[in-house]
Design a binder for these strands. Structure first.
Length: 571
RNA sequence: GAUUCCGUAGCUCAGCUGGUAGAGCAUAUGCCUUUUAAGCAUAGGGUCCUGGGUUCGAGCCCCAGCGGGAUCACCA
């Protein structure tokens, strides 16, 4: 246990006092709630006859006590509402303990209480609950960051990203907009789920632990299964498993999948992230473009009531139809260079010219991809489909029906970022084997993201997979865009971070080995002794005096020490 | 991984040329029966991220480390 601050010690003392008064600070039984803050705010002003017998629970966020009356603000899942406490109503009899002691002194900001009463409007015009009785539901021992707000103004905002991400619960308590962002994230997934279920596609689950990682070009996390004594990888994509299910005879399957990639982290990348992948039999990539447009447009409409979404200083309009342009045309449009007929050597020259760092591991596909990423992608703000990628960079996509050297693939780009990736799936098992082998070649050249060969997947294809359209959408990236969040950490509840720094110093047990009673250990620390070495060097007489002083100062309810006891610790 | 900025009270942040550690909110105590970020008054509260160094003297300067932010690199 780390050292307690003065306020934390006070709260622990309050906890004990409550118990002494016969009040359980953590009661077991449920507290019946019949209304939310939002319901009251939405309906009461229209009909003052409503809510004359409410029961509501929430966390105390603010208190203003004026003698025998007080205003308190509680926050439930839907928002905040003000409470009015009056001493003689809380305590109608002679005994004013519940108000004077329990409410005024033993409750704190952060405590969770339940109240019963009726709703009225104060002279200041604020909808308020007049409390007739209250009950402590959970005592809070830690002090919340105290954020003050009034309409749009916020004082002392809780903004430190490290604390916000590490202690997301605090972020959620204190920054109401955060709750809304995650509500919207779920709304995006619900809209997708409804849309796809309505079409009759099946939501499925496939392995996260995979003996071979495939379906994307990325470096995996590696782990080990003890009883099988084998290496397993955390999936980087679920593509190859979903396609096996299409071979098995489903018309359409999709999965919201957590994928894991062992790569750099920044505001667009978290090591684990969520994708939806969808595969539909007897369709092609043109059909899939229509679906993506329709589905994403619907998400924007469901969430914002319009197809226009503000992202940073831009406004993105997801209204159908989106622009469609081939990759080569897009590169030519932005650079005036036609790379469609170029070989690897020529492409290397172009890449260098536009400012791409080139190395020997790069094949033709990678080079084109880099050129595209450098010159075109950041400039595509409004949703745009880029179609017809070179075969070298798409080992799982079907060869283009009419353009040699290309595959039937598209990405949707919006706000300069990839929104989705999709293709007519390659179902020619012999071609697929060849493509895997080419990937192996790239691997030998040093491309550590090249794909590995999956024999079982090839075997599945050999049984025959119908022509299939496949799609992957990054949910985190989409959520960022739809909620106008500048960083991926803002749309992931618990983004990956380095472990918290450990507090140095001796443990409670180490101190107790000297015979120090447990209750005194925090006091020893408070007196400035963090390590055993420091403690051993202490003067027993001075320590005795200091501890006695601290006991008094902190109003600790533990028996005073005798000098003999303290001396005994040092023998 | 590189560059750069940051780390001071429970929270948000000041801190002079290197000379006794500051404010607001929060907390405690007293007063006060409807306040609107903060009622009034008073008080308590600190490992100035850690460890070295320079100095009579370091929150401040130097070195190293830890943690974080931003930008870049990497990122089908």
């Amino acid at each position: 246990m780390s050292e307690l601050s003065e306020q934390e010690i006070l709260r622990r003392n309050s906890l004990k006092e409550l118990r002494d008064l016969g009040i359980d600070p953590y009661p077991a039984e449920l507290f019946k709630v019949n209304v939310t803050a939002k319901e009251i705010h939405d309906q009461f002003p229209k009909d003052n006859g409503l809510f004359q017998d409410v029961s509501i629970a929430g966390r105390i966020m603010q208190r203003r006590i004026m003698g025998a009356a007080a205003f308190t603000e509680i926050q439930d899942a839907t928002g905040k509402i003000q409470l009015y406490f009056k001493r003689d109503e809380i305590c109608p009899g002679e005994d004013k303990t519940m108000y004077n002691i329990v409410f005024k002194r033993l409750l704190d900001i952060g405590d969770i209480i339940g109240v019963k009463g009726f709703v009225f409007t104060t002279q200041m015009g604020e909808t308020t609950i007049h409390v007739k009785e209250f009950k402590l539901l959970s005592k809070s021992l830690k002090v919340l960051p105290n954020v003050k707000e009034k309409e749009d103004k916020v004082w002392d905002a809780f903004t430190d990203p490290e604390q916000r991400y590490r202690q997301r619960y605090l972020d959620l308590i204190v920054n109401p907009k955060v709750k809304d962002t995650f509500f919207k994230r779920t709304q995006i997934m619900n809209t997708m789920r409804e849309y796809l279920n309505e079409k009759g596609y099946l939501e499925v689950e496939t392995p996260i632990l995979q003996p071979l990682y495939g379906g994307a070009a990325a470096r995996p996390f590696k782990t080990h299964h003890n009883s099988l004594d084998m290496t397993l990888y955390l999936r980087i994509a679920n593509e190859l498993y979903l396609k096996r299910l299409i071979v098995g005879g489903y018309d359409g399957v999709y999965e919201f999948s957590k994928d894991f990639r062992n790569e750099g982290m920044d505001r667009f990348h978290n090591p684990e992230f969520t994708q939806i992948e969808l595969y539909v039999a007897y369709k092609d990539y043109n059909w899939m473009m229509d679906l993506v447009e329709e589905m994403v447009e619907k998400i924007a409409m469901d969430m914002h009531g319009t197809t226009k979404v503000k992202v940073g200083d831009k406004e993105i309009d997801f209204k159908r139809p989106w622009k469609r342009i081939t990759m080569y045309d897009a590169i030519q449009e932005h650079t005036t260079i036609d790379i469609s007929e170029m070989n690897e050597k020529q492409l290397t020259e172009v890449a260098k010219k536009v400012g791409v760092e080139v190395d020997a591991s790069m094949g033709k596909g990678k080079l084109i991809d880099e050129i595209f990423g450098e010159t075109v992608e950041p400039n595509l703000i409004q949703p745009t489909f880029i179609t017809d990628y070179p075969v070298e960079m798409s080992p799982l996509a079907k060869k283009h029906r009419s353009k040699p050297g290309l595959v039937e693939r598209f990405e949707a780009i919006a706000n300069g970022k990839e929104l989705c990736n999709a293709f007519s799936e390659l179902n020619d098992p012999i071609d697929q084997r060849k493509r895997f082998e080419e990937q192996l070649e790239l691997g030998k050249r040093g491309d550590d993201e090249s794909m590995v060969l999956d024999e079982d997947f090839l075997r599945a294809l050999e049984y025959g997979m119908p022509p299939t359209a496949g799609l992957g959408i990054g949910i985190d990236r989409l959520a960022m865009m739809m909620t106008n969040s500048p960083s991926i950490q803002d749309v992931i509840f618990f983004p990956q971070m380095r472990p918290e720094k450990k507090a140095a110093g001796a443990t409670d047990a180490e101190f107790m080995e000297f015979g120090i009673p447990e209750a005194w250990v925090p006091v020893i620390r408070k007196a400035g002794f963090k390590t055993i070495e420091e403690f051993k060097a202490a003067n027993p007489n001075k320590l005795f005096n200091d501890l006695g002083g601290l006991r008094k100062k902190l109003k600790l309810d533990i028996p005073a020490l005798k000098i003999e006891e303290v001396r005994a610790w040092f023998e």
